[in-house]
Nucleic acid binder design. Structure first.
Lengths: 213, 213
DNA sequence: TTGACAACATACTGGGTAGTATGTTCTTTG
DNA sequence: CAAAGAACATACTACCCAGTATGTTGTCAA
């Protein structure tokens, strides 16, 4: 697998990644200084530069960390037998759930993809980002193959897979922008939100009947 | 109307707005320097600071300019008589078309909303951004009211309007991230893309039958 | 013709920031 | 127990950037 889980970060490195993810989410990549991340850790730059050679490498680390966790969620279901539409229901559900539960990491991954699409980066940054985005594209391929197969099996109905998978992902990813967990909110309420989002995407893809989740 | 078209920018100011929009889209707000915008104009900072008091005011100008154009597209259809679902079809279509045709401005508006959601801004910036986001929310209200009415008329079917309108907007806005107009591409091809996106959203909202656009 | 102002350009400043060079402390290993 | 290196902190530098202060040129009205 492309760059997946090559290195498991040790405890201190993991703390840095989490703090960095928080900062990147709150202010965005370029508005976040390395000192900001250090401050959040109650530490100084020295600690961060001991583990990461540069700010962009730190960002790449968070991206990788985030993508790993997203992959983790879907991994158990991606190769299950049965009709493709049933597989889609499961991976769409756990994907969206993960978007909400790991909102911070998911948004950093989002910004990474955005940065790549912009293209306005240094050649060295670009090389790293290229690899990461390939990793992320291999993830979206899982969904693309699944919905195409489901269409062949007569359960979905759409024209261009490229366009459709983009619309689908945008809908499934939407909560990373607006979802705010209420204090004392139980999982059941969160699942209700997930269900509505997945239902929207399911219908959008041309799925028939009700979504039984 | 909330802050709409109060001031029509003169020619020179409009040039600055366009150049700024290009820069903001390519690198994002904080990664863009005022000198960057000036360079793109073949001018210097002096010109920009003569028309705008600050970088954030420049951003606000682009945001306003972009929102005005988005409003423009929908305005002729928002109060047309007939069933709400038909009104939705029209405004969803022109909205998505505008997203693609004014992709640059649309992305700046997007980043403005994102910045507001993050909340990590100076109090003074926040005040300006608050007003702009209210302006943009009054726009999304048009869609929310329309789909709720269409649901009451039995043409749409969904649970929570707040969640659903978010999913819908994400789907309709998606092309601002991936659409790249091919050289020599005709409008007909672009409309085909729009049609697929709107179809996805239409079905997602619980619309029955085919979309006749 | 002149003076006043608009529309810029030029030159400068202070603060922030990525990255580096160099301590310091603690742990581990032979 | 000594020494070597890991895991940081401190101190510093060079640079970029928002904003300002001031100069310059063209226009237009009296």
């Amino acid at each position: 697998m492309l760059g997946a889980r090559d290195v498991v970060p040790d405890s201190s490195t993991a703390d840095i990644l989490v703090a960095a993810a928080d900062c990147f989410m709150e202010r965005g990549y370029s508005a976040t200084s390395v000192d900001d991340v250090a401050r959040r850790l109650g530490a100084t730059k020295g600690r961060i530069y001991h583990h990461f050679p540069s700010k962009s490498a730190l960002f790449a680390g968070v991206f990788q960390f985030g993508m790993d966790r997203i992959f983790d969620a879907v991994e158990p279901y991606r190769n299950q037998p049965g009709p493709a539409v049933e597989r889609w229901k499961r991976i769409a559900f756990v994907h969206t759930k993960r978007m909400m539960k790991s909102k911070t990491l998911a948004r950093v991954v989002w910004e990474g993809v955005e940065m790549h699409l912009r293209g306005a980066t240094t050649p060295e940054q670009r090389l790293v980002l290229d690899g990461l985005v390939k990793y992320r594209n291999s993830y979206s391929d899982i969904f693309r193959e699944t919905i195409v197969q489901a269409r062949e099996e007569g359960d979905f109905n759409f024209e261009d897979p490229a366009i459709t998978v983009q619309s689908m992902f945008m809908a499934l990813n939407s909560p990373i922008f607006w979802y705010v967990p209420r204090p004392g909110e139980d999982d059941e309420h969160m699942y209700a939100v997930v269900r509505q989002i997945v239902t929207f995407a399911y219908r959008g893809l041309g799925g028939k009947g009700e979504l039984d989740l």
